[in-house]
Design a protein around this nucleic acid. Structure first.
Lengths: 229, 229
DNA sequence: TTCATAGTTAGACGATAACCAAACTATGCC
DNA sequence: GGCATAGTTTGGTTATCGTCTAACTATGAA
């Protein structure tokens, strides 16, 4: 009896369309502001605020304030895993066995996760950085090695300035489509910004999809292999 | 956006206390009549009937009629796994300053998860099978090795018959109490069934708790170490 | 200080859905 | 057939909850 009560309490938090959309929008491990989540869910800010309050006190989300913004994210990996298992049931029950459209494929390949690169390219990049000894992974934490510092400075990123800020330089972020980590944090954002500045990639209008240009594709691949372009 | 809709649809089915109690009551893999489930949920028969209708058309339960009785059970192992993961979140969030009672300890040690063994013993068994080279783990997938096939046949399980069925032979299932994987799938079910047949373990009445007998305990430990008993 | 933006709180409205009682259908037993 | 039990359907009541507008608080920028 008690088991069912707990079960219902958590499930009912996910059981509202507005809240479910917010949670789904955070499945990439990123953090979004209340306004962004309101837009994502298609409700007004006050409504979204009420939902976010419930999700936070319910333990499904955690909130961090940064200036006048409040960033909401999933509480932890366990919550993300739970959502994924529910999505799994929904997917297997959903009659729409339609093949993934081009939009879905593009999203899977490369997309923006708040302000950094996600999708297959994001994961590949993270793996390459770790493999080349530029980043050091220790459990949940990700750190920048000396070699990495030199590399990213050379790539045109001001690491020193970044270390003065409140935002962590490195963070790992679980990729929904690939189920593996990609690079988030200030460095993740800076790298993506640099990609755009270099003309390697551009962002599709009103979408999270990132398009790589042919030279960008080449530069990106080269970057993963050995040296910055 | 659409992802959230699907998510909410499934979650809202679980999000009602009456329905959640019914689902929780079926987590032991059994089937119950509408009346029994009504009593379990603390509602009248008509109310229960409406809930069961929703759960069935929603794809979370399946119903089989037997004479004038209608037996309801969870639709499949995927649904059971989803419920376990929700329970896991609920358990880790519910501070319940109270120390876990004996019932909770028993559940944590060994319980039925739909139709296979979960809890510490379940996880230990899975680890041992992998360590002994009976199962091969590759990311999300779990496979049976040649050595494993021989071992389980020797243990009294008809692997060949199992491979003909639609249900996957091996699957891993995340354990909420230990946060690690245990063995599910047809093989997981068969192993548990064999334990009961051998008198190694028995199921507590109206509960998911599994009790191991003294000889069962010994046989189980021996099985994890080297050879089948 | 003044204005603008981000977010929460308050209050009211409307829809959804959970619930039960009573009537109805179906199956089993005598 | 006649009665009892299992379950569903219908109709109507109630309450919860999601939603909005409007007013309020807080932080940042000029």
């Amino acid at each position: 009896m008690k088991a069912g009560t707990d079960l219902a309490q958590i499930a009912s938090l996910v059981g509202d369309p507005a809240r479910a959309n917010m949670l789904a929008a955070l499945m990439n491990g990123g953090a979004l502001t209340a306004s962004e989540l309101a837009a994502e869910a298609g409700v007004t800010l006050p409504t979204a605020s009420a939902h976010l309050s419930k999700l936070s006190t319910g333990g499904l989300m955690r909130m961090t304030r940064q200036g006048r913004h409040r960033y909401y994210a999933l509480a932890d990996h366990q919550v993300a895993g739970m959502l994924e298992s529910i999505m799994g049931v929904a997917a297997s029950l959903g009659p729409k066995k339609v093949l993934p459209g081009p939009r879905d494929n593009a999203m899977r390949e490369a997309r923006v996760c708040y302000d950094h690169l996600a999708g297959e390219r994001g994961v590949a990049m993270f793996d390459a950085f770790v493999g080349r000894g530029l980043l050091a992974v220790s459990g949940e934490d990700v750190g920048l090695t000396e070699r990495g510092t030199a590399f990213f400075c050379d790539f045109g990123i001001d690491i020193a300035a970044m270390q003065g800020r409140r935002r962590p330089v490195c963070r790992s972020c679980l990729d929904w489509s690939v189920r593996r980590s990609h690079l988030a944090g200030g460095l993740g954002a800076a790298v993506l910004e640099r990609f755009v500045a270099l003309g390697w990639a551009r962002r599709e209008k009103n979408s999270r999809v990132m398009h790589f240009t042919p030279p960008g594709r080449a530069g990106f691949e080269r970057m993963l292999r050995d040296d910055a372009g």
